[in-house]
């Protein structure tokens, strides 16, 4: 299976958008080689602005460019784009409803060796809480290209979460993705794993492992955290009665938090949240860290079994 980092797909997508649309402008904060906006900078130097190591001003500048009619992609590492500059994203971009797409790479623990200071496990929560902000977590390179293109065409602010490490490509190029609609990648009646980002592949692996144990589980790619596909979540809750969420992010406030909010309010069933359990990251290889923080297919298998036993205990 081909492995491509979502940040690489982002860089290529930006160049395509730049070729098609004159109003695309890209900003970066001295990480263009890492976020891959350097591809755009090479192709369209006059429409790329390196704002230096100054994320707050980058977001404010993005707002000003957007107010003047540009569609602005602003990139940095997730921890800085959403954390350092959160209040600028809130007041200058989201409050004003401007056409700025915050596309941040190096999200989650798979940043690896750089360690906990650089591993954002809070960014989905930070962006999801902002009114009018679309929040997207693509699972692979195909999804990244489609979603980056989609946010260009969608009026208003958006956050796209990208990763550092190469991840398996799940989707065929012809796959259609629609804002606010999860994708049911696999159907099964025993439980449902709702995943995003790199955990989608892990969820598919877990489903295969569970099948060997005689359990058939559904796998949903919930790449759109906001607006959330509550209809699909509640349908899967009704069909399977046991939900597991899977994300490379804190279990607080991210996909797991969002699913729990929807389920508790509309279709109560047990939800087991797989993610980073309210702690910071650390240095290590991506594989070591995924294992340490419980973000593997094996962890998902256990979580599914727990969700099923919770469900059966209620019944």
């Amino acid at each position: 299976m081909e492995k491509v980092a979502t940040r690489d797909a982002y860089g290529k997508s930006l160049v395509k958008l730049g070729q098609m649309y004159e109003n695309v402008v890209v900003l970066d904060a001295d990480l263009s080689k890492s976020t891959k906006t350097a591809d755009f900078a090479a192709a369209f130097p006059e429409r790329f602005f390196n704002m230096g190591i100054a994320e707050q001003n980058m977001m404010g500048t993005a707002a000003g460019l957007a107010a003047a009619g540009k569609v602005v992609f602003a990139s940095s590492f997730a921890v800085f784009a959403t954390g350092r500059a959160w209040e600028q994203v809130r007041n200058s971009i989201a409050y004003a409803g401007l056409n700025v797409k915050v596309c941040a790479s190096h999200a989650g623990v798979t940043v690896g060796e750089d360690g906990g200071s650089h591993q954002s496990v809070e960014d989905i929560a930070l962006m999801r809480v902002l009114p009018g902000m679309t929040v997207l977590v693509p699972a692979d390179a195909v999804a990244t290209e489609k979603l980056v293109t989609a946010v260009y065409h969608q009026e208003g602010p958006a956050y796209v979460r990208l990763g550092r490490s190469a991840v398996p490509t799940i989707y065929r190029p012809e796959q259609e993705l629609h804002m606010g609609r999860g994708v049911e990648l696999r159907e099964g009646g025993d439980a449902t794993i709702i995943a995003c980002g790199i955990m989608v592949y892990q969820a598919l692996e877990a489903a295969r492992m569970l099948e060997e144990k005689g359990l058939r589980v559904s796998v949903v790619d919930m790449f759109c955290i906001k607006p959330l596909d509550e209809e699909l979540i509640c349908r899967k809750a009704a069909e399977t009665g046991a939900l597991v969420t899977a994300e490379e992010h804190s279990v607080i406030g991210g996909l797991g938090g969002a699913v729990c909010e929807a389920v508790a309010a509309q279709c109560p069933v047990p939800v087991v949240r797989v993610g980073v359990q309210d702690r910071f990251g650390q240095s290590g290889t991506p594989e070591e860290l995924l294992a340490f923080y419980g973000l593997t297919a094996g962890n998902l298998v256990k979580a599914v079994e727990k969700a099923i036993s919770l469900r059966d205990g209620y019944r």
Binding site: G60, G64, A68, A96
Partner: peptide, 23 residues
């Protein structure tokens, strides 16, 4: 510009000035 949170308006102005030059 939607301002009030201090420090941000000058950044908007930078963006507008860059856009004016681009256009």
């Amino acid at each position: 510009a939607s301002t009030g949170s201090l420090g941000q308006g000058i950044a908007w102005a930078i963006g507008m000035a860059l856009a004016g030059r681009l256009d």
